[in-house]
Design a protein around this nucleic acid. Sequence first.
DNA 1: ATGCTTATTGCAACTAGTTGCAACATTAAA
DNA 2: TTTAATGTTGCAACTAGTTGCAATAAGCAT
Lengths: 136, 136
Amino acid sequence: MSCFETLKAKGYRMTAERRAILEILHSTDGHITADRIYHQVRAKFPKANKSTVYRTLELLKGLNLVAETNLGGNSVCYHHIEQSHHHHLVCQKCGRVYDVDAAVFAPLQELLIKKYQFVPDIRHLAIFGYCPKCQG
Amino acid sequence: MSCFETLKAKGYRMTAERRAILEILHSTDGHITADRIYHQVRAKFPKANKSTVYRTLELLKGLNLVAETNLGGNSVCYHHIEQSHHHHLVCQKCGRVYDVDAAVFAPLQELLIKKYQFVPDIRHLAIFGYCPKCQG
DNA sequence: ATGCTTATTGCAACTAGTTGCAACATTAAA
DNA sequence: TTTAATGTTGCAACTAGTTGCAATAAGCAT
């Protein structure tokens, strides 16, 4: 199901701004901040408002079409979800971001379900620490 | 080593505002937002500034004297670190917060070290999901 | 194509948190 | 106790993100 169909199926509407935001997310390799999305949307729709961008990202996040990740800077990053989920290891020293396969978290998820009857909804997690090059 | 000594050992100074903030953190059971700390400090020092509160919390966080946790509301929470570390399971439906012992994360930590040579610095983590009462 | 319902937008004002800078205050040393 | 060094504060202006509301426009039915 395409993003368009997912929106429609839930009674949401497809607007020019939303299309633009989805296109930006699709054409972006890696992460992008809300502010950068906003500026790109403005290039096409000069009077688009930032609240529209934030509200759209919030909506897409709720529909599981984009992932929101706090990579430790002063603003949150977004990216479009397609294939496999992955998480991030962020080095507190050098700032490098490493991708980790979601499978690594499977044991933790099972443990939380078994021990706490809590079903985690781990979508895009950033774990901070020290990378191989910055230890000691 | 007391908070006071930890600060002094690193060349930081103990001021009236810092003392007030530490007292508030110590006397608070559970979590408290920066804004609430700010208002309590103001009760004692009417012209204290919010940037002082934020800067002090940032400092204490760096010294591992307080933990910062995003519990999903619109502001981050703090609490003073004493005994054992623990993490949080936050229900996305009802908002309840459950404490989880840090030991639950030990296997994940080992895996990250072994597989990625990444040493995680998991201090206060919030995992979102659905609690026992809100499933289905 | 027209009209109706209601989702969506722009706006403006707001909250949470950050930053540069000059003034100030703690600490240790003389 | 005075002084010097520098850590800390208040201030004001800023960034990121949110919210209520009236105006607008998408999508559907006719």
